[in-house]
Protein backbone atom coordinates (compact mmCIF):
# COMPACT_ATOMS: atom_id res chain seq x y z
CA UNK A 1 0.00 0.00 0.00
CA UNK A 2 1.22 3.45 -0.76
CA UNK A 3 -0.37 5.09 2.22
CA UNK A 4 1.71 8.01 3.34
CA UNK A 5 1.59 9.96 6.55
CA UNK A 6 -0.09 12.91 4.91
CA UNK A 7 -3.53 13.48 6.42
CA UNK A 8 -6.12 14.08 3.72
CA UNK A 9 -9.27 14.00 5.82
CA UNK A 10 -9.33 15.37 9.32
CA UNK A 11 -12.62 15.33 11.20
CA UNK A 12 -12.76 16.31 14.83
CA UNK A 13 -15.86 16.49 17.00
CA UNK A 14 -18.25 16.69 14.05
CA UNK A 15 -21.85 17.26 15.06
CA UNK A 16 -24.98 17.62 13.00
CA UNK A 17 -28.33 18.63 14.32
CA UNK A 18 -31.63 18.95 12.49
CA UNK A 19 -34.06 20.92 14.61
CA UNK A 20 -33.73 19.29 17.99
CA UNK A 21 -32.47 15.92 16.76
CA UNK A 22 -28.76 15.17 16.72
CA UNK A 23 -27.91 12.89 13.80
CA UNK A 24 -24.15 13.01 14.31
CA UNK A 25 -22.54 13.13 17.75
CA UNK A 26 -18.88 13.91 18.07
CA UNK A 27 -17.63 12.06 15.00
CA UNK A 28 -13.83 12.03 14.89
CA UNK A 29 -11.53 10.35 12.39
CA UNK A 30 -8.69 10.87 9.96
CA UNK A 31 -7.73 9.44 6.60
CA UNK A 32 -4.23 9.36 5.15
CA UNK A 33 -3.16 9.75 1.58
CA UNK A 34 -3.89 6.66 -0.51
CA UNK A 35 -6.10 5.02 2.06
CA UNK A 36 -9.44 3.35 1.29
CA UNK A 37 -11.72 4.15 4.17
CA UNK A 38 -15.13 2.52 4.41
CA UNK A 39 -17.86 4.04 6.48
CA UNK A 40 -20.07 1.12 7.38
CA UNK A 41 -23.40 1.28 9.11
CA UNK A 42 -27.07 0.43 8.94
CA UNK A 43 -29.51 2.74 7.19
CA UNK A 44 -30.09 5.94 9.11
CA UNK A 45 -26.75 5.74 10.91
CA UNK A 46 -25.61 9.11 9.54
CA UNK A 47 -23.31 7.91 6.75
CA UNK A 48 -24.83 10.08 4.03
CA UNK A 49 -24.93 13.13 6.27
CA UNK A 50 -21.25 12.66 7.12
CA UNK A 51 -20.15 12.24 3.52
CA UNK A 52 -22.24 15.19 2.35
CA UNK A 53 -20.61 17.43 4.94
CA UNK A 54 -17.18 16.32 3.74
CA UNK A 55 -18.20 16.88 0.10
CA UNK A 56 -19.12 20.45 0.98
CA UNK A 57 -22.79 19.88 0.13
CA UNK A 58 -24.11 20.25 3.65
CA UNK A 59 -23.19 22.65 6.44
CA UNK A 60 -22.34 21.05 9.77
CA UNK A 61 -23.62 22.21 13.14
CA UNK A 62 -20.33 21.98 15.01
CA UNK A 63 -16.85 20.51 14.96
CA UNK A 64 -13.73 20.92 12.89
CA UNK A 65 -13.53 19.43 9.40
CA UNK A 66 -10.60 19.63 7.00
CA UNK A 67 -10.66 18.03 3.59
CA UNK A 68 -7.35 18.35 1.74
CA UNK A 69 -6.45 21.04 4.23
CA UNK A 70 -9.56 23.12 3.57
CA UNK A 71 -12.87 23.50 5.39
CA UNK A 72 -15.34 22.06 2.84
CA UNK A 73 -17.96 24.61 3.84
CA UNK A 74 -15.65 27.24 2.35
CA UNK A 75 -13.97 25.24 -0.41
CA UNK A 76 -13.22 27.27 -3.54
CA UNK A 77 -13.18 26.04 -7.14
CA UNK A 78 -9.52 25.02 -6.87
CA UNK A 79 -10.39 22.81 -3.92
CA UNK A 80 -13.43 21.47 -5.78
CA UNK A 81 -11.15 20.44 -8.65
CA UNK A 82 -9.13 18.20 -6.30
CA UNK A 83 -12.18 16.38 -4.93
CA UNK A 84 -14.20 13.77 -6.81
CA UNK A 85 -17.79 12.91 -5.99
CA UNK A 86 -19.48 9.85 -7.43
CA UNK A 87 -23.17 10.67 -7.70
CA UNK A 88 -25.85 8.21 -8.57
CA UNK A 89 -27.18 9.07 -11.98
CA UNK A 90 -30.82 8.81 -12.63
CA UNK A 91 -31.74 10.36 -15.92
CA UNK A 92 -29.50 13.41 -16.16
CA UNK A 93 -27.65 14.00 -19.42
CA UNK A 94 -29.70 11.19 -21.00
CA UNK A 95 -29.20 12.44 -24.54
CA UNK A 96 -25.47 13.02 -24.18
CA UNK A 97 -23.07 10.41 -25.46
CA UNK A 98 -20.72 8.71 -23.03
CA UNK A 99 -17.40 10.00 -24.36
CA UNK A 100 -18.89 13.40 -25.14
CA UNK A 101 -20.04 13.93 -21.55
CA UNK A 102 -16.72 12.78 -20.10
CA UNK A 103 -14.77 15.07 -22.41
CA UNK A 104 -17.10 17.97 -21.61
CA UNK A 105 -17.00 17.53 -17.83
CA UNK A 106 -13.25 17.01 -18.06
CA UNK A 107 -12.80 20.37 -19.74
CA UNK A 108 -13.83 22.13 -16.52
CA UNK A 109 -10.67 20.74 -14.89
CA UNK A 110 -8.24 21.75 -17.64
CA UNK A 111 -7.03 24.82 -15.75
CA UNK A 112 -6.35 22.95 -12.54
CA UNK A 113 -3.39 20.73 -13.43
CA UNK A 114 -0.46 20.68 -11.04
CA UNK A 115 3.15 19.58 -11.48
CA UNK A 116 2.21 16.10 -10.33
CA UNK A 117 -1.29 15.72 -11.64
CA UNK A 118 -2.31 16.27 -15.23
CA UNK A 119 -6.01 17.17 -15.33
CA UNK A 120 -8.38 16.05 -16.76
CA UNK A 121 -8.27 12.35 -17.47
CA UNK A 122 -8.37 11.61 -21.19
CA UNK A 123 -11.94 10.65 -22.11
CA UNK A 124 -11.00 7.61 -24.20
CA UNK A 125 -8.64 6.30 -21.56
CA UNK A 126 -11.31 6.76 -18.93
CA UNK A 127 -13.96 5.01 -21.02
CA UNK A 128 -11.60 2.05 -21.36
CA UNK A 129 -10.72 2.08 -17.69
CA UNK A 130 -14.35 1.72 -16.56
CA UNK A 131 -14.98 -0.90 -19.22
CA UNK A 132 -17.31 1.03 -21.50
CA UNK A 133 -15.28 1.29 -24.72
CA UNK A 134 -17.94 -0.29 -26.91
CA UNK A 135 -20.51 2.12 -25.49
CA UNK A 136 -18.45 5.30 -25.88
CA UNK A 137 -20.72 6.71 -28.60
CA UNK A 138 -23.97 5.51 -27.09
CA UNK A 139 -26.52 7.86 -25.64
CA UNK A 140 -26.41 7.64 -21.86
CA UNK A 141 -30.11 6.79 -21.55
CA UNK A 142 -29.45 3.62 -23.56
CA UNK A 143 -27.00 2.26 -20.96
CA UNK A 144 -27.96 -0.44 -18.47
CA UNK A 145 -28.02 0.35 -14.76
CA UNK A 146 -24.60 -1.18 -14.16
CA UNK A 147 -23.09 0.63 -17.12
CA UNK A 148 -24.53 3.92 -15.89
CA UNK A 149 -22.99 3.41 -12.52
CA UNK A 150 -19.60 2.79 -14.05
CA UNK A 151 -20.08 6.00 -15.98
CA UNK A 152 -20.87 7.70 -12.66
CA UNK A 153 -17.51 6.53 -11.36
CA UNK A 154 -15.82 7.77 -14.53
CA UNK A 155 -17.45 11.18 -14.06
CA UNK A 156 -16.36 11.20 -10.43
CA UNK A 157 -12.72 10.68 -11.36
CA UNK A 158 -12.54 12.65 -14.63
CA UNK A 159 -10.68 15.46 -12.85
CA UNK A 160 -8.12 12.99 -11.40
CA UNK A 161 -9.21 13.72 -7.83
CA UNK A 162 -6.85 13.31 -4.93
CA UNK A 163 -9.80 12.32 -2.79
CA UNK A 164 -12.88 10.45 -3.99
CA UNK A 165 -16.24 10.17 -2.22
CA UNK A 166 -18.67 7.36 -2.99
CA UNK A 167 -22.00 7.16 -1.19
CA UNK A 168 -23.52 3.66 -1.36
CA UNK A 169 -22.04 3.11 -4.80
CA UNK A 170 -23.16 -0.49 -5.33
CA UNK A 171 -26.76 -0.27 -4.18
CA UNK A 172 -28.79 -2.23 -6.71
CA UNK A 173 -25.83 -3.93 -8.39
CA UNK A 174 -25.89 -7.53 -9.51
CA UNK A 175 -22.96 -9.67 -8.28
CA UNK A 176 -21.05 -9.33 -11.55
CA UNK A 177 -21.36 -5.54 -11.61
CA UNK A 178 -20.42 -5.40 -7.96
CA UNK A 179 -17.26 -7.39 -8.54
CA UNK A 180 -16.19 -5.23 -11.48
CA UNK A 181 -16.86 -2.16 -9.43
CA UNK A 182 -14.73 -3.44 -6.56
CA UNK A 183 -11.84 -4.11 -8.94
CA UNK A 184 -12.15 -0.58 -10.25
CA UNK A 185 -12.04 0.95 -6.78
CA UNK A 186 -9.00 -1.14 -5.80
CA UNK A 187 -7.20 -0.11 -8.97
CA UNK A 188 -7.89 3.54 -8.31
CA UNK A 189 -6.39 3.23 -4.88
CA UNK A 190 -3.43 1.07 -5.86
CA UNK A 191 -2.43 2.46 -9.25
CA UNK A 192 -3.46 6.06 -8.83
CA UNK A 193 -3.01 6.59 -5.09
CA UNK A 194 -6.48 8.07 -4.82
CA UNK A 195 -7.71 8.40 -1.27
CA UNK A 196 -11.21 6.98 -1.13
CA UNK A 197 -14.03 7.35 1.34
CA UNK A 198 -16.91 5.03 0.63
CA UNK A 199 -20.12 4.36 2.50
CA UNK A 200 -21.97 1.08 2.47
CA UNK A 201 -24.25 -1.00 4.61
CA UNK A 202 -22.81 -4.11 3.04
CA UNK A 203 -20.22 -5.80 5.23
CA UNK A 204 -18.84 -7.99 2.57
CA UNK A 205 -18.11 -4.94 0.48
CA UNK A 206 -16.43 -3.17 3.38
CA UNK A 207 -14.25 -6.20 4.04
CA UNK A 208 -13.20 -6.45 0.39
CA UNK A 209 -12.39 -2.82 -0.21
CA UNK A 210 -11.32 -1.21 2.99
CA UNK A 211 -7.86 -0.54 4.33
CA UNK A 212 -9.77 0.66 7.33
CA UNK A 213 -13.40 0.33 8.38
CA UNK A 214 -15.32 2.70 10.57
CA UNK A 215 -18.64 1.53 11.85
CA UNK A 216 -21.13 4.32 12.28
CA UNK A 217 -24.24 3.69 14.26
CA UNK A 218 -26.77 6.12 15.65
CA UNK A 219 -24.58 9.04 14.67
CA UNK A 220 -21.49 7.73 16.47
CA UNK A 221 -18.42 5.93 15.31
CA UNK A 222 -18.60 2.75 17.34
CA UNK A 223 -15.53 1.02 15.91
CA UNK A 224 -12.56 1.92 13.74
CA UNK A 225 -9.83 -0.37 12.45
CA UNK A 226 -8.91 -2.93 9.80
CA UNK A 227 -11.33 -5.77 9.20
CA UNK A 228 -9.03 -8.08 11.16
CA UNK A 229 -8.66 -5.73 14.06
CA UNK A 230 -12.37 -5.27 14.29
CA UNK A 231 -12.88 -9.02 14.17
CA UNK A 232 -10.42 -9.55 17.02
CA UNK A 233 -11.41 -6.62 19.10
CA UNK A 234 -14.81 -7.86 19.89
CA UNK A 235 -14.60 -11.19 21.64
CA UNK A 236 -15.83 -13.35 18.81
CA UNK A 237 -16.12 -17.09 18.97
CA UNK A 238 -14.92 -19.32 16.16
CA UNK A 239 -17.12 -22.12 15.01
CA UNK A 240 -15.67 -25.64 14.75
CA UNK A 241 -17.53 -28.40 12.89
CA UNK A 242 -16.47 -31.96 12.46
CA UNK A 243 -17.83 -35.48 12.07
CA UNK A 244 -16.87 -38.52 14.10
CA UNK A 245 -18.14 -41.95 13.23
CA UNK A 246 -20.58 -40.42 10.79
CA UNK A 247 -22.04 -38.13 13.43
CA UNK A 248 -21.97 -34.36 13.06
CA UNK A 249 -20.67 -32.06 15.78
CA UNK A 250 -20.47 -28.31 16.16
CA UNK A 251 -18.90 -26.19 18.88
CA UNK A 252 -18.27 -22.48 19.39
CA UNK A 253 -15.02 -21.56 21.04
CA UNK A 254 -12.66 -18.63 21.37
CA UNK A 255 -9.64 -20.93 21.31
CA UNK A 256 -10.25 -22.89 18.15
CA UNK A 257 -6.65 -23.99 17.54
CA UNK A 258 -6.25 -25.49 20.96
CA UNK A 259 -9.68 -27.05 20.75
CA UNK A 260 -8.87 -28.78 17.45
CA UNK A 261 -5.53 -29.98 18.81
CA UNK A 262 -7.27 -31.54 21.79
CA UNK A 263 -9.86 -33.04 19.52
CA UNK A 264 -7.24 -34.87 17.46
CA UNK A 265 -5.34 -35.92 20.56
CA UNK A 266 -8.46 -37.51 21.88
CA UNK A 267 -9.90 -39.14 18.75
CA UNK A 268 -7.08 -39.15 16.21
CA UNK A 269 -8.16 -40.32 12.76
CA UNK A 270 -11.78 -40.76 13.74
CA UNK A 271 -12.21 -37.02 13.13
CA UNK A 272 -13.29 -36.09 9.60
CA UNK A 273 -14.77 -33.12 7.66
CA UNK A 274 -13.10 -30.65 10.00
CA UNK A 275 -14.12 -27.09 9.45
CA UNK A 276 -13.08 -24.03 11.46
CA UNK A 277 -14.99 -20.86 10.77
CA UNK A 278 -13.38 -17.71 12.12
CA UNK A 279 -15.65 -15.19 13.70
CA UNK A 280 -16.35 -12.93 10.78
CA UNK A 281 -16.68 -9.22 10.52
CA UNK A 282 -20.34 -9.89 10.01
CA UNK A 283 -20.67 -11.26 13.52
CA UNK A 284 -18.75 -8.28 14.82
CA UNK A 285 -20.88 -5.83 12.89
CA UNK A 286 -24.15 -7.39 13.92
CA UNK A 287 -23.11 -7.53 17.53
CA UNK A 288 -22.00 -3.91 17.45
CA UNK A 289 -25.16 -2.70 15.83
CA UNK A 290 -27.22 -4.87 18.09
CA UNK A 291 -25.48 -3.50 21.15
CA UNK A 292 -25.92 0.02 20.01
CA UNK A 293 -29.57 -0.53 19.26
CA UNK A 294 -30.46 -2.44 22.36
CA UNK A 295 -30.08 0.72 24.36
CA UNK A 296 -26.94 0.00 26.32
CA UNK A 297 -25.74 3.08 28.07
CA UNK A 298 -23.09 5.05 26.27
CA UNK A 299 -20.60 4.55 29.07
CA UNK A 300 -20.97 0.81 29.07
CA UNK A 301 -20.62 0.70 25.33
CA UNK A 302 -17.47 2.76 25.42
CA UNK A 303 -15.87 0.90 28.29
CA UNK A 304 -16.63 -2.70 27.69
CA UNK A 305 -17.54 -3.42 24.14
CA UNK A 306 -16.08 -0.90 21.83
CA UNK A 307 -12.72 0.66 21.58
CA UNK A 308 -12.58 3.55 19.25
CA UNK A 309 -9.24 3.98 17.59
CA UNK A 310 -8.13 7.57 17.54
Amino acid sequence: MTTSEEVVLDVDGLRMRYGTTDVLHDVTFQARHGEVLVLLGPNGAGKTTTIEILEGFRVRSAGRVEVLGTDPAHGDERWRARVGVVLQSWRDHGRWRVRELLAHLGSYYAGYSTELIQRPWDADELVAMVGLPEHADKQIRMLSGGQRRRLDVAIGIVGRPELLFLDEPTAGFDPQARREFHDLVRRLAEEHQTTILLTTHDLDEAEKLADRIMILNGGRIVADGTAEELGQRIVGEDEVRWTRDGQRFMRSTDESTKFVFDLFKQYGEAIADLEVRRSSLEDTYLSLVHQAESGLSEAAAANNLVEVDQ
Binding site: E55, F57, E77, R78, R80, A81, V85, L87, Q88, S89, W90, R91, D92, H93, L105, Y108, Y109, Y112, I155, G159
Partner: peptide, 20 residues
Amino acid sequence: AEREDGTLLRAKATPNGIGG
Protein backbone atom coordinates in the same frame (compact mmCIF):
# COMPACT_ATOMS: atom_id res chain seq x y z
CA ALA B 1 -36.35 19.26 -14.31
CA GLU B 2 -32.56 19.28 -14.09
CA ARG B 3 -32.59 19.96 -10.40
CA GLU B 4 -34.80 16.91 -9.98
CA ASP B 5 -32.70 14.63 -12.16
CA GLY B 6 -29.38 15.62 -10.61
CA THR B 7 -27.84 17.55 -13.52
CA LEU B 8 -27.46 20.56 -11.29
CA LEU B 9 -25.83 18.55 -8.51
CA ARG B 10 -23.27 17.26 -11.01
CA ALA B 11 -22.58 20.87 -11.97
CA LYS B 12 -22.14 21.69 -8.31
CA ALA B 13 -19.63 18.86 -7.89
CA THR B 14 -17.55 20.28 -10.77
CA PRO B 15 -15.23 23.30 -10.49
CA ASN B 16 -17.00 26.32 -12.02
CA GLY B 17 -19.76 23.88 -12.85
CA ILE B 18 -22.73 26.06 -11.89
CA GLY B 19 -21.45 28.96 -13.99
CA GLY B 20 -20.86 26.63 -16.92
